[in-house]
Amino acid sequence: MAFAGINWFKYSSPATFYPLAGKMMPWFAGLAAVLTVIGLYMSFFVAPTDYKQGEAYRIMFIHVPAAWMSMFIYVVMAVYAAMGLIFNTRLSAMMASSLAPTGALFTFLALWTGALWGKPMWGTWWVWDARLTTELILLFLYIGFMSLEAAIDDPRRATRASGLLAIVGVVNVPIIYFSVEWWNTLHQGASISLDKAPSMATIMLASMLVMTLAFWMYTIAMVLYRVRCEILERERHSEWVVALMEERK
């Protein structure tokens, strides 16, 4: 029952979240750096060479986590946007708009590393295969979200309109995820699943998971950083921000 004692809504107020985010951010940033180093070391030096794909497969250690993150961040963004629209909480809307650039970055990274891998494996940078196309659509959705928010002058309307767009666009995520199974295309299916033994060596799996965790930490750190800027900008007329600025001077 200790749960009930804490007022969870307290942390959804920008004024209390701002210092909290400031305290948490360096930790996540540090963790992200450490995990990236470990993950990259494992991917490039510890994991054995794949007998079919040679050394080039190592790009997968970045490609797969980036692709996961690109979809996952979109869903999280849509959930925050929905919370912002339904409960009218300012912080969730700010979280949604802070997530978008990082999501777009990972989408781009997934496409780019995919192209790097595709050249030696498929002999071409790009094919019009279902998963590639839908991932590209995802990138457009991120860009659409950000440009809609930028185009509307009134900040309140901007967050609400782009939030609705994020929710509408979320239909695309399952399409990307299942595209490999629905259409029999060039892109290979997932090699990792929970119910059967993974079709890859444990060490490969471990390095991929470490990389995913590293990307996670990076995302959280970036979002905390961005949401702090966002809070200051949107609340610049409120008393606590003015007081904070006075203090800094």
């Binding site: 009134d154 900040p155 309140r156 007329h237």
Partner: peptide, 8 residues
Amino acid sequence: AVRGDRRL
């Protein structure tokens, strides 16, 4: 009511 930055 709030319009943009201004509190009306």
